[in-house]
Design a binder for these strands. Structure first.
Lengths: 348, 348
DNA sequence: GGAGTTTTTGGTAGCGCTACCAAAAATATT
DNA sequence: AATATTTTTGGTAGCGCTACCAAAAACTCC
């Protein structure tokens, strides 16, 4: 014969770890739970008198709203996952900064995910973070596994893909025409009269945006009747040291190189600093151009010519596009080209 | 007379937005919902046969676990808020990187919060993120509002405070003795024979760790019979440009300064690069020391002498301490001194 | 074959809040 | 004063999963 079951109100979970709930606040304030919920979330629907009582009870009891329960009840949280390929590259750091600042000011929280340039890892990460019923998602880049694209499209909530612009994106896209940006620097070097122009990068097997810029670079050179195949790369992550190394490798392999288009400013800066140490005069002996627009570029000797990518603004804009969608506004186009600009300085 | 109420099963929320639930998976696999939950979360408690059926159903239906509901049911999520004062300062970026990589590899997600050095904002942020029933929290620094300290202590889950070490911390503390680190550089400069040593910083009204290092610097100098009051600062955030500016201000105000202790490497690097442009020979005319250990320090000409703070490792360690606590292990002490090291290079 | 133990599977109330429906109170209009 | 409308407040089932309790099945030992 079955043992006697506990009465409903005797059957409690998590014995011994009681936290103040909205129910407690309601009892303390002498109102219904839904009135407490309204006082906190839509105060304009509650009379001043009751609002004051609720606020007093919240303070007195030290109540912290359980956003998990609220999220379950309302089918969503104020969390926004931001998925980037790397947290050790300044590009993404500044973008995250722009996103985080904008979202936090709007009362949202950023859930940070890093894929290490692995699309399978990205797919698993997306599945994981969607479990938190976020309000929207911000992804980096347009390259994903088909499963990821299908999942996010089917999900039906706002998705922003940032960094490079493309013609096929899940929901919204903000960034720059990365190939054009590469072509811009290549054109600049050609117009400056350099003839033996190399492209130097690292980790380009994973960083397809750098590959796009190299392809554009190559096209510009070949259209100008120059050799576009001068490519030097290794598998290291981008760093000053990697820039230093690949710079020396390139000059040793091809001493007649008269200009170098670096895949990014970290590499270019590493090269310029090494050139300074070795007495290689930039741009007299070899011109150097970069990509990104790191603030360091303005302080080097010589100051670095670079293509400036508006990273912080990209983050801000991605967040704003998402927030507008969430608020039912359509202030932004679905695809926003932030543009880049060529900062011509002393190194070319 | 009251209108007829909907039957319970006819009364549904969120009409028109059905997502696959664990219940659907259970029906499809022909098992109870709790068996699906077990298959996904504790598979060793489910027979192979049923596990396979569940996995198949998950794939077929494209089920994504609702972590909100799971979090409510189990009184917690696998989210870890990480609260830092700024996302534009490399120090914290590298720490976040260490945290995020370690937590993500352990199946946790980082919720990113930034306080902009405002303790009131920090208090509000803490209240907000606790609402997600996180497993633990990582804070930056030991200075908080009393309300924040009380709240986190009462919360009763793991809390790690990182960056500087102290004697009073909420739960766990990992970092370095920041005053000693400041004293270390000051001692080095004194031992090198410099007599007119200035301390240069920015934003020190907010950055109390920099103030601690200055106080320690001052003590070392005065104990050596030197003038410890040579302090130059402004209110800008730390940047190469700020470093450049405050460097020129200091030299103009006190041309006899023969060494400078910078509050961080960004400032020091800005100064070195400006010195290069203006033909000021470092360390011959003025020695320069920094704090942090930025990788840039090794590439400047002259290479920067600095106190290296293990930032990435600090992040990794903070995350590991939290994870150990969550797993019921006690591999780490509650207070971990990571130590710093003085990297003596060419600039002193 | 039966008793005892362990493993596997299941039922369901509850986690905390809110969407939905509705009642009560207050205000405006006639 | 009565009626109509608007504002404010309330009841409760349900959001999706799981802790807790329990039953069923499988296994071991005698």
């Amino acid at each position: 014969m079955p043992s006697e079951k506990l009465a409903n109100r005797e059957r409690r979970r998590h014995q011994g770890e009681h936290r103040v709930t909205l129910e407690d606040v309601a009892r303390h304030a002498g109102v219904a739970p839904i009135t407490v919920s309204r006082a906190l979330n839509t105060p304009e629907k509650v009379s001043t008198k009751l609002r004051d009582r609720v606020d007093q009870a919240v303070k007195t009891l030290g109540y912290v709203p359980n956003l998990i329960a609220g999220g379950l009840a309302s089918a969503g949280t104020r969390v926004i996952p931001v998925v980037v390929p790397s947290l050790s590259i300044l590009t993404f750091i500044e973008v995250i900064h722009g996103i985080q600042q904008t979202l936090e000011n709007a009362g949202y929280q950023v859930l940070l995910g890093s894929t290490d340039y692995d699309l399978n890892r990205e797919a698993a990460l997306v599945d994981s973070v969607l479990g938190y019923s976020p309000s929207g998602v911000i992804m980096t880049g347009l390259h994903h596994r088909d499963t990821t694209i299908d999942r996010l499209r089917a999900w039906g909530r706002p998705v922003v893909e940032l960094m490079e612009l493309g013609t096929s994106y899940i929901d919204m896209n903000v960034g720059v025409e990365t190939s054009e940006a590469g072509a811009c620097m290549a054109s600049h070097l050609v117009e400056r009269g350099y003839r033996r122009i190399a492209f130097l990068g690292t980790g380009m097997d994973r960083d397809y945006r750098a590959r796009y810029r190299y392809h554009a670079h190559r096209e510009v050179l070949e259209r100008a009747g120059l050799d576009g195949s001068l490519l030097f790369q290794n598998d290291e992550p981008a760093s000053y040291e990697a820039g230093r190394r690949v710079f020396l490798e390139a000059l040793e392999a091809q001493p007649d190189i008269d200009a170098i288009h670096f895949a990014n400013d970290n590499l270019a800066a590493g090269a310029i600093m090494e050139a300074n140490r070795q007495g290689i005069r930039v741009p007299d002996e070899v011109a150097i151009g970069g990509y990104l627009g790191l603030s360091l570029a303005e302080h080097l000797t010589p100051r670095l010519t670079t293509v400036v990518l508006p990273r912080f603004e990209m983050g801000v804009r991605a967040a704003e596009m998402l927030l507008d969608r969430l608020a039912g506004r359509e202030r932004h186009a679905q695809r926003v080209d932030l543009g880049y600009r060529l900062a011509v300085r002393e190194s070319t």
